[in-house]
Amino acid sequence: SSRTRFTDYQLRVLQDFFDANAYPKDDEFEQLSNLLNLPTRVIVVWFQNARQKARK
């Protein structure tokens, strides 16, 4: 499967949200999905990866 290429804007929004809340609710994932024009699944995985990185 091909990797999603995030724009700088998408990454900034995701990172800002993550800094405020590492565990979004379903409706928040949906809002981010609509805002960033990305599939919810891609955003869910991004947050999983970000939490892994933050733990190191």
Results as ranks from 00 to 15, higher is better:
Phe6Ile: 08
Val42Thr: 15
Asn34Cys: 05
Asn21Ser: 08
Val44Asp: 14
Leu11Asp: 09
Gln31Gly: 11
Asn49Phe: 03
Ser1Trp: 00
Tyr9Phe: 04
Thr40Glu: 05
Gln52Met: 08
Val42Ala: 11
Leu32His: 01
Arg55Pro: 13
Tyr9Pro: 07
Val45Asn: 14
Ser2Ala: 05
Asp27Cys: 06
Asp16Lys: 07
Pro24Glu: 01
Phe18Met: 05
Gln31Trp: 06
Ser1Leu: 07
Leu32Ser: 01
Leu32Tyr: 07
Thr4Trp: 02
Arg51Ile: 12
Gln52Tyr: 09
Leu38Tyr: 03
Phe18Gly: 00
Phe17Val: 09
Asp27Tyr: 08
Glu28Val: 08
Asn49His: 06
Ala50Pro: 00
Arg12Asn: 13
Gln52Cys: 12
Leu11Ser: 13
Phe17Cys: 07
Lys53Val: 10
Asp16Val: 05
Asp26Thr: 13
Gln15Tyr: 03
Pro24Arg: 02
Ala50Glu: 10
Leu36Asn: 00
Thr7Glu: 12
Tyr23Phe: 14
Thr7Leu: 05
Ser1Glu: 15
Phe6Ser: 02
Arg41Val: 14
Phe17Leu: 05
Leu36Glu: 00
Asp27Gly: 14
Lys56Thr: 11
Gln15Thr: 09
Lys25Ile: 07
Lys56Arg: 11
Asp27Lys: 09
Gln48Phe: 06
Thr40Phe: 10
Arg55Ser: 14
Leu36Ala: 06
Pro24Asp: 03
Lys56Ser: 14
Ile43Met: 04
Gln10Ile: 01
Tyr9Trp: 07
Arg51Ser: 06
Gln48Val: 10
Ser2Tyr: 14
Pro39Arg: 06
Ser1Phe: 05
Asn37Phe: 06
Pro39His: 08
Ala22Asn: 12
Asp8Asn: 06
Asn21His: 13
Asp19Ala: 12
Arg5Asp: 15
Arg51His: 04
Phe18Lys: 03
Val42Met: 11
Arg3Met: 15
Leu11Asn: 12
Glu30Leu: 04
Ala54Val: 12
Pro39Thr: 07
Thr7Gly: 04
Arg55Asn: 07
Thr7Asn: 03
Leu38Glu: 06
Gln52Lys: 10
Phe17Pro: 00
Leu38Met: 11
Asp26Lys: 10
Arg3Leu: 15
Asp8Tyr: 01
Gln48Glu: 14
Asn34Leu: 08
Phe6Tyr: 11
Tyr23Leu: 08
Lys53His: 13
Asn34Glu: 14
Asp26Ile: 13
Asp27Ala: 09
Asp19Asn: 11
Asn34Met: 12
Phe17Ile: 02
Leu14Gly: 00
Gln31Val: 12
Phe29Ser: 04
Asn34Ser: 13
Phe6Glu: 02
Pro39Met: 01
Asn49Leu: 05
Tyr23Arg: 12
Leu14Arg: 00
Phe47Thr: 03
Asp26Trp: 05
Leu36Cys: 05
Asn37Trp: 03
Val45Met: 09
Ser1Gln: 03
Ile43His: 00
Pro39Ser: 13
